[in-house]
């Protein structure tokens, strides 16, 4: 098991190297403003896709309401920063807590549903959240919430993302994660093994919603302004596509999915209609030729090549 710790250490070192390189690029202004923003967006989208993967990929509960929880986090964070002048970290933590609580409250009744019904119910709930926000004048209503301080820089986005990845990786490799996967594989057998399926479904939903809230808070503090139209179910589709593209049940996959789709989106941003048509074709082609996603349910650390490289036999 020490090998596990060692693997963690390696991962941390690699992450730090990545951070230093990217930060150096940013500090020396080697990237233009557009890409500077997109690097932050990639980090935020990774948080969203990995947290959605916990619900959809690991626990097998098909949620289409992720953008709703993101909206809760975004507005909570914005209100705390603008109206209460709270430090950013307080906004972030409160965003997590608020989105997680609402996620849990929503999860409790809806987790009785399964498959398509759950998908469509979460979609509806996400839309309800958005419509309610749209009707609250305190947060700007349909016009959006303006004047949010720009707290999110690359360092914040990167380290929050790292924390979320670390949290979810360890979560899924514990008895909590095994309970989730058991539910996905066979709910009746999971119950028969003593797994309280309701509890673990709601827990996964709560944690996933909480981190979507954190991503929302980072998002709100990136653009000065947030708008209810950023959090429609189409945004939820987008995060779902990242998860499916990368592979349901693979953290590596979610990272790759978020990275690729955010980059492709950015590259095609000058041709908005074409962008979406191409996007759609990629999606359909992916389902035809690689429906399990790029990584299936495999992590990069367990690929045979890398295993040999490390010489270890740990998982």
């Amino acid at each position: 098991m020490n090998a596990l710790r060692k693997a963690d250490l390696k991962a941390i070192i690699i992450s730090l190297v990545v951070f230093v390189v990217l930060q150096a690029l940013l500090s020396t202004n080697s990237l233009d403003a557009f890409w500077q923003l997109n690097i932050i967006l990639i980090c935020i989208n990774i948080i969203l896709s990995v947290s959605l993967n916990l619900i959809n990929g690991y626990t097998g509960q098909f949620s289409l309401g992720h953008a709703g929880f993101m909206a809760i986090g975004a507005y909570t964070g914005a209100v705390l920063s603008v109206n209460f002048h709270m430090p950013f970290i307080v906004s972030l933590i409160t965003s997590f807590v608020t989105a997680a609580i609402i996620g849990g409250l929503i999860g409790l009744p809806t987790m009785r549903l399964s498959g398509d019904y759950l998908a469509i119910a979460t979609l509806g709930l996400g839309e309800i959240i958005r419509i309610v926000i749209m009707n609250v004048n305190y947060v700007g209503g349909a016009a959006g919430f303006m004047g949010i301080p720009r707290h999110t820089n690359f360092a914040w986005a990167f380290f929050v993302m790292l924390f979320v990845l670390f949290f979810i990786k360890n979560y899924v490799n514990s008895s909590y994660g095994r309970a989730c996967v058991a539910i996905r594989e066979n709910e009746i057998a999971a119950e028969a093994m003593g797994v309280n399926t309701t509890k673990y479904k709601v827990l996964a939903f709560t944690i996933g919603a909480g981190f979507a809230g954190v991503a929302g808070c980072l998002f709100a503090h990136t653009f000065y302004i947030i708008h209810p139209s950023s959090f429609t179910f189409l945004a939820s589709f987008n995060y779902l596509i990242m998860v499916v593209m990368g592979g349901m049940g693979s953290i590596t996959g979610s990272i790759a999915g978020a990275f690729i789709l955010t980059t492709v989106s950015a590259l095609l941003s000058n041709w908005p209609e074409l962008r979406m048509s191409i996007y759609a074709l990629i999606l359909i082609a992916l389902m035809f030729y690689r429906p399990q996603g790029l990584f299936g349910n495999i992590e990069i650390t367990s690929l045979p090549v890398l295993k040999r490289f490390k010489g270890g036999k740990q998982k």
């Binding site: 398509d116 998908a119 589709f237 779902l240 596509i241 499916v244 979406m276 048509s277 996007y279 759609a280 074709l281 999606l283 359909i284 992916l286 389902m287 035809f288």
Partner: peptide
Amino acid sequence: LITAIGVSFF
């Protein structure tokens, strides 16, 4: 389902 979403966007 994802394909349907793709067709929709398309």
